[in-house]
Design a protein around this nucleic acid. Structure first.
Lengths: 228, 228
DNA sequence: CGTTCATTTGACACGTGTCAATCCCAGTGG
DNA sequence: CCACTGGGATTGACACGTGTCAAATGAACG
């Protein structure tokens, strides 16, 4: 996901039987519409979540970073509502769905964390919806790149060439509801503006404030008025 | 929300101190960006959830039906990430946020339900994102009306004139990322097609299958392949 | 019978999608 | 060492869906 989250999730289930697994780039971890006996936490690598339309159109729902929790939907709803695939090689912490109930029974604080995670994801999707519904192509790209950049920086991925962004322009396009061609041209515009340089799998953001400006970042909310 | 959900949420916190409150149409229950000491369950009436952009653009995130749970984000994240307002007069079951933790500590099954709720909401938002990102205006409207219709029917709201749909065309437009004018013209097209008749606050759907066709409903998921 | 708000309609502009070609680059094999 | 290949990125020309502007209609209300 774009948002950073409290890293305790990475380890919170170490009390349960779990295993480290390695998956190669391109591997699908969870299939839309399928139940899964496994839940995962991401230890290393990046991926993406996506949904398909019967006509083949794809919607990228989110991008996956280290620290993310995968499979909660399957865990509580019985099946995944989107697919998750590895974009780079990944290292995952895998554990059994059957153990999930034990967490709720024995570790209320951890259960609360899970709900927090789900609420965070809900919050992100609301932001994404706002972006696809109300912003033009330039703002959408600025919004997405800003969040990817922040998330990568928060994860400690920043290097001399910027932060790693291993996805394709097609992936960004499918995430933002734009065509590949228009995404490409808009990225070129952002490059000329000096707002963001993405090439060779790395994203450089000279000044996050420039991106934030283009993204029409909210400054909190509407004017608060007294509650009833 | 569009999806129906297990109605036990309506009553699941009756063990805690709560109060029935009435709110008039137009009232804002929860403000985006604000913490709230209250959580709510909807007993009667309809409303909507929305987010604002600093320039005044609005995104309707979801529509609220009886049975919905309001304020979970504020409950676990400290503040609301969207506003909730009453479209019709509503009756709510109100209880204190401070009691939320007791649920996690003392009633793991209810805590699990809360996580289920959050996951359901996440699922819905993913669907909405898919709709805004990949479908054209006709499909978007068909998708939205079909879900509103199903939800209303599941809630037992069906009457001789169809199901109540108290929102404005502007609300639908803001939910689907369309302009008011284009929404109006597309609704007229759906009417001519005999797919959906919405007027006078009521929605009639002669044949849900027609709407489903227009909405490009998924038939499950992509072809499943073996997991690793 | 004015006022106000929602709906409806037509004309037109523009952002974005589509099509198609080219460029770039990393592999790969002769 | 160099064609050949395939996938991604880039570019230009053009079509079309949707947004915007503006005006008219209709319903609710005092």
């Amino acid at each position: 996901m774009f948002q950073p989250m409290n890293a305790e999730e990475i380890t919170f289930m170490q009390a349960f039987k779990s295993a480290e697994v390695e998956v190669p780039a391109g591997q699908v971890l969870l299939w839309e519409g399928q139940p899964s006996p496994w839940l995962f936490t991401v230890l290393r690598g990046q991926g993406l979540r996506s949904k398909m339309l019967p006509d083949g159109d794809r919607q990228v729902v989110n991008f996956v970073f280290p620290g993310d929790f995968l499979g909660l939907q399957s865990g509580v709803m019985g099946e995944m509502k989107h697919s998750v695939e590895a974009t780079t090689d990944m290292t995952l912490c895998r554990f059994a769905r059957a153990d999930l109930w034990r967490v709720f029974r024995d570790q209320p604080a951890r259960a609360f964390d899970l709900t927090y995670l789900a609420a965070t994801e809900e919050h992100f999707l609301g932001e994404a919806l706002l972006t696809l519904g109300q912003r033009d192509a330039t703002s959408r790209l600025a919004w997405a790149l800003l969040r990817l950049w922040r998330r990568a920086v928060a994860t400690g991925m920043q290097g001399p060439r910027g932060v790693p962004l291993p996805w394709r322009q097609r992936d960004l396009a499918d995430a933002l509801g734009l065509s590949l061609v228009h995404t490409n041209k808009t990225l070129a515009r952002l490059r000329i503006l000096g707002a963001a340089h993405w090439s060779g799998g790395y994203l450089a953001v000279p000044d996050p404030a420039v991106l934030a400006e283009l993204a029409q970042e909210e400054d909190g909310a509407a004017t608060p008025r007294p509650l009833f």
